[in-house]
Design a protein around this nucleic acid. Structure first.
Lengths: 359, 359
DNA sequence: CTGTTAGCGCCTTCAC
DNA sequence: GTGAAGGCGCTAACAG
């Protein structure tokens, strides 16, 4: 065992380049390949050599260069994650869960936000492939058809979350949008309400559509008249809701299909001094941190954001393990919880939950 | 111009490997190096060759392999981002802003969560370096001293956010914790309050300490008695706050030093049926999405999360450009807003803001 | 079990 | 302006 070999290059003042596998091999008096085998465990190596190699690694502070590994072995141990916005707690929670699974598997995450832009999503996904990601998890943006079903992504394992990508071979993970909404609306009906309005903002066409369908199914099943408002964006919500509440037959209950719609509605109701649940009952799709501390705590359909991220990531790793076997897209749909608080008219002692039934 | 040259390897059924720079060079009848120059713009190339090369690139759908580039050029165009939790809206918003800056600079982000664990933070940071990130942005976890001041990170550009890392050469971006808190407490004092309690949970020692100091400074300046409660964790908050409110001289106002403390307090106040702001005035550090829709809308100190992320990322890129010049750590402190709502006792028509003064 | 050879895809370097 | 050679650091493939 020789002392730390001076690097091949003359050791200038302080450049001192990182030790490479060759340095370790030289010091341990073996071939680089043998060092590699110890590192990766790809094949057995005689114990005494293992010892020498490990000592050399210690002394040189050797750490493998993952970029070189990725280039040579065609395995980057990196997956891509594309979300519309990280500032949305729902997406951020999914990202957090994905990260945990990735770390458990020894993978890292290359993340990016699409800002709900088709071109950004597409170009960032391409860039990820060029950077050698082994697979991509994506929450497609609202309001367009994702282009990730293109040919160039044919050989990249892909899992879609929350919304689908239009290509049957792609795995998807959704929540029970339809059943959850139906459950929520039926809860309102059980409270005796008959004039129930469904309010959406304009974003996120796929999920909102599913949720509206759930609302409509519940209404049809009980012979009630459907009334859906779909353009309650931040700008127009105030006007639309005032009109609604001041009409001659205003609803006695409202179902909002996502967080923004719920927030827009609540703002206007505050302005109008409408009291929940006396003047109006409300259930919103999607829970949020302070839902239990509003003027009237809100009954909501809670989505399993963390669970979604976890399952999607696990699916992706299953695909990575199955290498190139022909792949059939699997659709996983997670149940949602109806978290009953005060806004629907219940007077629960403790917040209770009800789970969406599986169809 | 020849038709798409069959790849060197025989084109088996459908393996069809990705085109490389050599394929493009062959097709355009130039040396690979010339193609590289067109790609990177590293040197001028005669227009007719440029044309031939661009045509070949189109025909072959050539895209450069970024892993190979990173290995050869020692520039990955990737930066690392470490946050404690992505499920925290404050951190997630920072991550979002960081992403936007990175994309603008043609960089990608390798992200990971430390879960507030010293070892995770350290090992993930190491892994990022092995993956060739050019720099790291980190929000250090709560409750320990980050190990990223170690020797091995000496040559990795580093920027700390929200909390410092104990090493003077590292850039940091903070908010005005001290001034913001002082401003908030002075606002309460201006409302005529004299018994003001400061409540913290146990996490995040650095920022909470700074905020407590701001509170104390304001109290001292006005000859008021300091009363700080530091262990209002989710488990103990209820007990501690009940004790406080039922003491014989309960405070007439409270200043909470972060989101969790605010939330814990609000929960208990709901249970105790304490009405804001009549029974008690409250200002919390850190804004959140539904702060304006609580039983009584909350007056808060708002932190510029997005701005923090943006500035930290910009700093990192400045370091990347300055290559190896000796670096002196720069500390950037951002002002915070006092967002006045109802909980402090104001009756604003429109929510108003006040900016923390710079010292 | 171990070493040799070669090359992943690109760009640095240097010669022309 | 252009090309040839060589190697970034590692491991696949093969030979022994």
């Amino acid at each position: 065992m020789t002392p730390p070999a001076p690097p091949a290059v003359r050791s200038t003042a302080k450049s001192r380049r990182r030790a490479t596998i060759a340095d370790v091999a030289r010091m341990a008096n073996v071939a680089p390949m043998t060092v590699s085998r110890v590192l990766t465990g790809a094949a057995a190596v005689r114990p005494d050599k293992v010892k020498r190699i490990q000592d050399a690694i210690q002394l040189l502070h050797y750490k493998p260069n993952e970029t070189a590994r990725a280039l040579r072995s065609q395995r980057s141990r990196i997956i891509g994650l594309i979300v519309p916005r990280l500032s949305d707690p729902f997406f951020a929670t999914i990202a957090h869960a994905v990260n945990n699974v990735a770390v458990d598997n020894g993978y890292s995450i290359l993340i990016t936000t699409s800002n709900d832009e088709e071109e950004t999503e597409y170009s960032q996904a391409q860039l990820m492939v060029l950077r050698g990601v082994e697979g991509i998890l994506i929450i497609p943006g609202a309001g367009y058809h994702s282009k990730l079903n293109r040919l160039e992504f044919e050989h990249v394992p892909l899992v879609a979350l929350d919304k689908p990508i239009d290509e049957p071979s792609i795995d998807s993970v959704f929540v029970e949008n339809f059943q959850g909404s139906r459950l929520a609306v039926e809860h309102l009906i059980a409270h005796g309400h008959t004039r129930i309005t469904c309010i959406s903002d304009a974003s996120d066409l796929y999920t909102l559509h599913k949720r509206q369908q759930g609302y409509e199914q519940a209404m049809i099943d009980h012979d009630l008249k459907i009334n859906t408002i779909t353009d309650c964006t931040a700008q127009r919500a105030s006007e639309r809701i005032r009109l609604l509440m001041q009409s001659k037959n205003p609803p006695t209950a409202i179902f909002t299909t996502n967080g923004p719609a719920t927030r827009n509605l609540l703002h206007t109701l505050l302005e109008l001094a409408v009291k929940l649940p006396d003047d109006l009952a409300l259930i919103g799709f999607d829970d949020f941190e302070f839902a239990d501390m509003l003027q009237t705590s809100l009954t909501v359909v809670r989505q399993p954001a963390s669970e979604m991220g976890r399952i999607a990531a696990l699916r992706l790793f299953e695909q990575l393990q199955q290498a190139n076997q022909p792949h059939i897209g699997k659709i996983i749909t997670l149940p949602v919880d109806l978290v009953i608080r005060r806004s629907c008219g219940c007077k629960p002692r403790l917040p209770s939950r009800q789970r969406s039934p599986r169809t």
